[in-house]
Design a protein around this nucleic acid. Structure first.
Lengths: 170, 170
DNA sequence: TATAACTTTCAATACTTTTTGAAAGTTTAA
DNA sequence: TTAAACTTTCAAAAAGTATTGAAAGTTATA
């Protein structure tokens, strides 16, 4: 038992993993995937599938699938131990790098389909008020989407400190 | 029938509504809620619950619930027609204003709980490598979260054109 | 090659979220 | 008041998503 003021590691760990999972879930990312990410973030060494299964109480299939998804996002990587056939996994630890990887992936998955859709819808025929309004709105959406797109590109290029320093100077 | 190059309004409308719904869904926003938003965005006049039900082929309960949610986000408002007891709904049309309202809501729902959790986890006891790593990571997360928080505040204060002009100058 | 150690797949199941629609609630106007 | 016009609620059903676990697949080494 520690002093009242302090928090036990196991509790803190649990809270962090759950909280990160919840955050992911509310952004449309599989909760287990976020939890694995959290677990690997705070782990001092790479973990095996069995470690992850044990710690998060999940099945092999689930662990495998979500680790693979994290790898495809570039957020998690494999490592090997000499004389051991198991795969071990570790997370990119630089938060800014993670933010970049995630925004890159989401840009690809969401922004690009949106822009494609807006393209397809540009040349609607007619000159009624309805059609005029439709064109006005979709062009506006396109404008904002393209700006968001450039912003994400910028984030992708600059490193974190520079970006925020530059962003926050008045 | 129009020329091949052009797109029929009804098709374009449908595509826009579906696409906007899809985008919302992948950001953890109820698909129907996004679709109603899309419908009201491109509508030249306020629509009643029955209009929305008919256009999107959804039940009264569903329409009511999601319109109310949009109102609570500040994205949709009520209007009334003289001599008509029905409520009519219209959307904020300024995309930048919508982006602000949405980011404000999500900040409240997600960023704030995250920061609270990180607070709760700050004072973990111990000096093992494990604990050190945990502190390092959670402080990093806090740093990025707070920067995101300031950025959202900034977005909330500036208007769209100014923000992007300022963001994009070099 | 055979086998043990591991990873991947995927149909079935469990869980979560959304939607429905009928009943209850509210408001307006005659 | 009362009745019609409307809105809201909410339990049950449907739809969508995530998870399981056993079987199939792969790889290393004896």
């Amino acid at each position: 038992m520690g002093y009242l003021y302090f928090v036990k590691f196991e509790e803190a760990e649990e809270k962090f993993i759950q909280g990160w999972g919840q955050l992911g879930a509310s952004w449309g990312i599989n909760r287990t995937m976020s939890q694995i990410n959290a677990l690997l973030l705070i782990s001092t060494q790479p973990l095996s599938t069995d470690d992850i299964m044990a710690k998060l109480n999940i099945s092999r299939g689930n662990a495998n699938m979500n680790v693979r998804e994290l790898i495809s996002w570039g957020v998690v990587r494999k490592s090997f131990k000499p004389g051991d056939r198991k795969e071990y996994f570790y997370s990119v630890k630089d938060m800014w790098e993670i933010a970049r990887l995630v925004s890159k992936e989401r840009k690809r998955r969401e922004l690009e389909p949106l822009l494609t859709m807006l393209q397809e819808v540009r040349d609607v025929e007619g000159s009624s008020e309805q059609v005029k309004e439709f064109k006005r709105v979709t062009r506006d959406v396109e404008k904002v989407a393209k700006k968001a797109d450039s912003m994400l590109d910028l984030i992708g290029k600059l490193d974190g400190n520079r970006f925020f320093k530059w962003l926050m100077k008045k």
